Computed example of a mutant assay.
Amino acid sequence: MLVLLAFIIVFHITSAALLFVATIDNAWWVGDEFFADVWRICVNNTNCTEIGDGFTDYATMQAVQATMILSTILCCIAFLIFLLQLFRLKQGERFVLTSIIQLLSCLSVLIAASIYTDRRQELHSQNAALYGQTAEGTYGYSFILAWVAFAFTFISGLMYLILRKRK
């Protein structure tokens, strides 16, 4: 049981770390001489512009930002609640509250990555001339980590739903 508990804790911490990196790091869309994320666009690794009101379709980027932050916060809250439930739950009960919060985190990262996937072409092609770059590029590792974090949080949420407290 101790090995299973250690695995679940490490898996949850890994999920949270993936969410932090995907939210913070600047590699959602990368191309020749530029990279972009949900916070800023950088050209030639030196000329960085924050995504703000002048950005076309700024509301979409705010939705992606908000849901990525929400997923990270919910994942951390789920971990803290898991630790509390670990000591408070009676033997044989399930970690339902932890599971619900972790699945909400999963849903939030799914929404963020889906919005970015759907609107990426519009976001970068409309703003390419504005920021002196081309829209040609590929998805970066932070975008991929967001989708991996989705899978990890989903699996983690299901594990908590199935898991019962034992001695």
Rank of each mutant, 00 (worst) to 15 (best):
residue 34 F to C: 03
residue 139 Y to S: 10
residue 123 L to A: 01
residue 4 L to H: 09
residue 7 F to P: 00
residue 130 L to V: 11
residue 27 A to N: 15
residue 75 C to E: 10
residue 149 A to N: 07
residue 20 F to Q: 06
residue 137 G to N: 06
residue 138 T to Q: 10
residue 141 Y to D: 09
residue 22 A to V: 03
residue 17 A to R: 04
residue 139 Y to D: 10
residue 40 R to Q: 14
residue 95 F to Y: 15
residue 117 T to C: 06
residue 60 T to P: 01
residue 14 T to C: 11
residue 85 Q to L: 06
residue 128 A to I: 03
residue 64 V to D: 04
residue 158 L to A: 08
residue 2 L to H: 13
residue 149 A to E: 08
residue 50 E to G: 09
residue 39 W to C: 05
residue 102 Q to K: 12
residue 106 C to A: 12
residue 162 I to G: 07
residue 143 F to S: 04
residue 90 K to D: 08
residue 35 F to R: 15
residue 85 Q to F: 09
residue 145 L to S: 06
residue 132 G to I: 09
residue 95 F to S: 03
residue 163 L to M: 15
residue 13 I to Y: 00
residue 162 I to Y: 15
residue 108 S to T: 05
residue 45 N to Q: 11
residue 12 H to E: 11
residue 80 L to Y: 07
residue 59 A to W: 01
residue 113 A to K: 04
residue 38 V to W: 11
residue 104 L to S: 09
residue 4 L to V: 12
residue 75 C to R: 03
residue 60 T to D: 08
residue 8 I to Y: 08
residue 102 Q to W: 04
residue 40 R to F: 07
residue 158 L to S: 01
residue 153 T to Y: 08
residue 16 A to R: 01
residue 119 R to T: 13
residue 34 F to K: 02
residue 104 L to N: 00
residue 116 Y to Q: 07
residue 140 G to R: 02
residue 159 M to F: 12
residue 157 G to H: 01
residue 48 C to N: 02
residue 46 T to M: 09
residue 165 K to N: 01
residue 7 F to S: 10
residue 157 G to S: 06
residue 18 L to K: 07
residue 114 S to Y: 01
residue 11 F to S: 07
residue 84 L to E: 10
residue 4 L to Y: 09
residue 56 T to F: 07
residue 78 A to S: 15
residue 147 W to H: 02
residue 68 M to A: 14
residue 113 A to V: 10
residue 115 I to N: 05
residue 148 V to I: 15
residue 136 E to Q: 08
residue 122 E to M: 12
residue 93 E to I: 04
residue 141 Y to A: 09
residue 62 Q to F: 01
residue 75 C to P: 03
residue 3 V to Q: 10
residue 117 T to A: 12
residue 112 A to Q: 04
residue 77 I to C: 10
residue 17 A to F: 14
residue 95 F to R: 00
residue 160 Y to T: 06
residue 75 C to Q: 11
